[in-house]
Design a protein around this nucleic acid. Sequence first.
DNA 1: TGGATTTGACCTGC
DNA 2: GCAGGTCAAATCCA
Length: 291
Amino acid sequence: MQTQSRSIVNANGGAATGFGSAPAVDEQYYEAVVRELARGHELTGELQAELLRVLRGQGQAEATAAFILGEVSRAFTVCTSIMGGSSTPAVTAPADGTLAAATAGEGARRAKEDGVPRKRTVTPSPYSDGYQWRKYGQKRIIGTNFPRCYYRCGYHRERGCRATKQVQEEQHSNAGGPRMYLVIYGHEHTCHRASPTAAVGLLDFSAVGLPRQQEQGGVVQLSKEELEQQVLVSSLACVLQGSQCYSGGGSQEGSSSQGRTGAGEDGGSAPAVPVETSLDVMDYYDVTDTL
DNA sequence: TGGATTTGACCTGC
DNA sequence: GCAGGTCAAATCCA
């Protein structure tokens, strides 16, 4: 049991990168989310301008506001891209397959999949797309520096879902920036696992640099930055999920930090732990006061 | 101990 | 024959 949650590539973290294989209804949902994210981003910009105008010359307050709003803005950008929005870094690969690692040597052999249409995506968080994945193979691809990992839907067996995806680290990922991965989706999901609520986990915290909580004696202690980011993440989770807020602490995702490939810690069954940090303005001020 | 991951072998298409 | 995709035994881990 624990193993299952441990090994299934976390879906919760789900990026839109993945919704290429999501059912149409989910696609509509994602589009709506992307739209709202864009709107939120836009409003954040306006708020930022307004706040900075009001706080001009107020030293610390101005700097804090600028920082926080900048982070919010950045978070919106990251979320939008993760959700498959227009902003980078998540970019749907061109159909011509010009992506570096993407196509080395494949091409003709592609037809093995019975002509199944494949969606290619480049994303910094390949393991979080709203579905649960199980790794079934890995292969070195000629002409590339990184192996390609093969994943099947976690419900392949029990529900006969044929969805597959391949994940390969992009060769040209710049040293300084986040690693980018080419993700190729195979069959459509028939398990209908991904529900809109799964979007909560769409935030790939490790990808956006969210520090993990430090647990001490059972008490979660957060640093200032962590607390700030938790608030930001929580607010974004609110945006994504509506009324319910979830903690970013359950950082899922399996960015192969342990060599265990991308298989993440916990998948859809992820403990999307409800948190009291449901963010409203007062909460935020409480937090900043505490800081 | 059960389930997931790893990895070499096998299969298939070009 | 080569290379990508998949299988399955071995291994790992909670």
